[in-house]
Design a protein around this nucleic acid. Sequence first.
RNA 1: GUCCCCAUAGUUUAAUUGGUUAAAAUUCUGGACUCUCAAUCCGGCGCUCUCGGUUCAAAUCCGGGUGGGGAUACCA
Length: 471
Amino acid sequence: MGIIRTRFAPSPTGDLHLGNARTALYNWLYAKQHGGQFILRIEDTDQERSTKQYSDDIITALQWLGLQYDNEPEYQSTRFERYQERIEELYKTGDAYRCYCTRERLERLRIEQLAQKQVIRYDGRCRNKDPLVASDLPFVVRLRTPLEGETHFDDSVLGHICIQNNQLDDLVIARSDGMPTYHFSVVVDDIDTGITHIIRGNDHVNNTPRQLHIFKALKATPPQYSHLPMVLNEDGQRLSKRRGALGILAYRNAGYLPTALCNYLLRLGWAHGDKEYFTAEEMLSCFNLEHLHKSPAQFDTQKLLWFNQHYLKNLSLEHLLAPLKTQLKQLSIDTKQGPPLAEVATLLQQRGKTLKEIASASAYFYKNDIVYNLRAKEKYITKQSLALMQNVLSQLESLERWHVDDIKQVFHRIIEDQKLRFPQLAQPLRIALTGDTASPAIDMTVYLIGKKRVLQRLRHFLQQYPGSSQI
RNA sequence: GUCCCCAUAGUUUAAUUGGUUAAAAUUCUGGACUCUCAAUCCGGCGCUCUCGGUUCAAAUCCGGGUGGGGAUACCA
């Protein structure tokens, strides 16, 4: 047995979505855990819908996910001559022929067959024409496939699959503009790159017998197939761009970590007992084709968020800071003035499910235009609490050392003097400084916002209640 | 229409491969802790699509329904 080689073969006609990413992950895992190669092939034979932008984004997305492919990406559009060469061979062996049937005729045929409740398939009108006698008319190339018998294969997920050949027809392998179709170019490339295992979406199960016929005509041994169940969106429908499926890069922008996404995708359709968390090493050692699930999996944002929070909590400071800065920039939060970002980030690290949440939660450390939660104000801002804050303000003003411990002492002295409970001080103060009722510990929050800004904000806040400030 | 595939809590997956009372995670929810939030810990709700068959024994094997997905393109 030679080297294991898998491939990920997206078509650049849209963004990579979660289902595609999972396929890529499984292919990568399978190749790498066997010391094999993982190849990226861009299937851009559809010249009308393929774009460079999509190809580039696919590559960026794979890099972000950490799925490093071997060699340079292969573009099918550059291999036209090779496909042509193989078609010529098939003419000679009689496995391919030119078909001059018009689209109109084929459409009529289809309608007729549907009306008669028959299998919809090409009727083989051009099947017996001499392939070497060319005409000026436009033509497609079809593969001559067996009319009887059956075609079967063993799928590592689905088991034995068998299809009657009379359900299939002579499929088109090259379009009238000469470009090969998907079925043909995939097979030629899989043969040329020595792909040993094809792991791909369930939507290809029915394509497999057709491709098996091409393998046979090209006298090559087919690879081992594994067909993955579809990934459904949260409404239980198939993922599709039209139904709002997000591209992988959109998840990056939304503040997800690639480790979380990979772990989530790994568990979507595959399990290793009840184990949930997998490091990259664990993924590589545990993954196998045997435990792939057969039925479709529905995407669930909640669980992805849970994974994301888990990985966020355990992220080292340096790995947290870099992507956090990107998020902060997007929210136009400037961290040059104010507390060191490292301290703010550490404080907020456990309090967000995404990098974006952490970034936006850090706003009040850097921005002075506080947005006040009205309901919070109604609940906590009273004559008493305003008086209390007037007190807090003057005590903080006269504080010589701006340390957390000193700040804490100030607060405790005040509540002891006035016989209050801690929240009676903490909540109104929190609202005055951050705008809302939730933040990290109040002493730490006050400390990090900084003396100057704390005093500034408190004064500004108290000015909103001129009547009360006299008390 | 025809063919192929699938079916365990709302969701993702377990169940020693036919053998205890079907388990874990997530969501939701109650509580503990706490200055709030988060984190953490403890508890609760909730599942074998349906009908029949085989068997001492079925989530597991077989058949029929029902439901879902896919293919049937000069898309991939």
